[in-house]
């Protein structure tokens, strides 16, 4: 199902949890809403599900205006952050719930058959007689997914669904869930604060900041061309460097980093560099190597002290450092944003 959000605002008291959000999701697409806590991503998900109202703006799902359509009539599958399983029901009854509350309730045999098929789909057929408190976090998540899928939604909403899983299981479940999305041909929206998760699972990532969607793009495009300083700082493992631009040259004083060219107006600016973009060469300078970590492949990673600042850098090709060596720092590239928001790729 297509999702079309236009200019949606949602206020809680004085705080705008959503501030003029627009977003469109294509049929069959997997979109992640990525942002720090408080950026409004969960609120947006709840608006899509019909669990939260809006103060202004429109929402169309599959072309239909959702104003005044309650959650129960939207037919959208939702997997909640803490799964929200019904504790007094067995796994079977949990999954069957969406079928049993239908106005035209299918016969019991059909319900049973469909529940079993769903439990097999999420790979926990053996759990049907258990209660939610008797199964593990990962199993609960699968049951919650089966329950959401029971109503055969064309749109699936996932609110931080991996939060309660340990790192190892998380990675595996991510791939499995993405496979499930592709297999079922549904449209999915995932809320997460974990950029790795968003970038690995989603076709496109919508980065949210303080109630706004600031950029919607593929993972590669977000890394290559961050639209704002916030995106540049939030995605990738970027370091933030204060700097100043004059006559098309970016200077990092007082940091001992070589100036770099960028086509930006004069004035204060902020540069963002990825870990590999800060390069250390041998030479007498203010910067001093504090730690060296040799890598199996590629250059050694360094931690460099420069005055009060501590920077991550890599050794220039063919050069070796020991702790205490002094070095010269330069950038092989950076995203630079001037105070007025204009942006340039330096180097």
């Amino acid at each position: 199902m297509t999702v079309e959000v236009r200019g949606v605002t949602r206020r809680f008291g004085n705080l705008a949890a959503l501030d003029g959000v627009s977003l469109s999701v294509a049929e069959g697409e997997f979109v992640a809403l990525l942002g720090p806590s408080g950026s409004g991503k969960t609120t947006l998900l709840r608006v899509l599900a019909g669990l939260e109202g809006t103060d202004s703006g429109t929402l169309h799902i599959a072309g239909r205006d959702m104003a005044g359509v309650p959650a129960r009539e939207r037919g959208i599958g939702v997997v909640f952050q803490h799964y929200a399983l019904f504790r007094h029901m067995t796994v079977f009854d949990n999954v069957a719930f969406g079928l049993r509350v239908r106005r035209q309730r299918p016969p019991a045999a059909e319900i049973a058959q469909r529940v079993r098929r769903l439990l097999e789909l999420v790979q926990v057929p053996e759990l049907e007689r258990r209660y939610p408190e008797q199964i593990s976090g990962g199993q609960r998540q699968r049951v919650a997914l089966a329950r959401a899928l029971a109503i055969e939604p064309r749109l699936l909403l996932l609110d931080e669904p991996f939060g309660a899983l340990d790192a190892l299981v998380r990675k595996e479940v991510r791939r499995w869930l993405r496979g499930l999305h592709d297999g079922l041909g549904i449209t999915s929206v995932l809320v997460t604060h974990d950029q790795e998760e968003a970038m690995e699972m989603a076709d496109r990532v919508a980065v949210m900041e303080r109630g706004r969607v600031v950029q919607v793009d593929t993972a590669a495009a977000l890394l290559r061309e961050p639209a704002t300083a916030f995106v540049a700082g939030f995605v990738g493992d970027a370091a933030r460097l204060p700097c100043a631009v004059r006559d098309g040259v970016v200077r990092f004083d007082p940091l001992p980093i070589a100036p770099i060219a960028a086509a930006l107006p004069d004035g204060p600016a902020t540069a963002f560099t990825r870990p590999g973009e800060m390069v250390a060469r041998r030479g007498a300078g203010e910067a001093q190597v504090r730690l060296v970590r040799d890598e199996v492949e590629g250059p050694a990673r360094l931690v460099v002290g420069a005055g009060a600042a501590v920077l991550d850098a890599v050794a220039a090709p063919g050069e070796h450092f020991a702790r205490g060596d002094s070095c010269l720092l330069s950038l092989s590239g950076a995203h630079v944003f001037s105070a007025d928001g204009s942006r340039a790729r330096a180097g």
């Binding site: 803490h82 929200a84 509350v101 959401a148 029971a150």
Partner: peptide
Amino acid sequence: MAAEAEEAAATLGATRAQTVLRVVLPGLL
């Protein structure tokens, strides 16, 4: 009792009455 359970019931298509009868009251029984 998390409000989430009631919201989950709503997204699964339950009316308010069904939510109270099938989710809230059994939980409180």
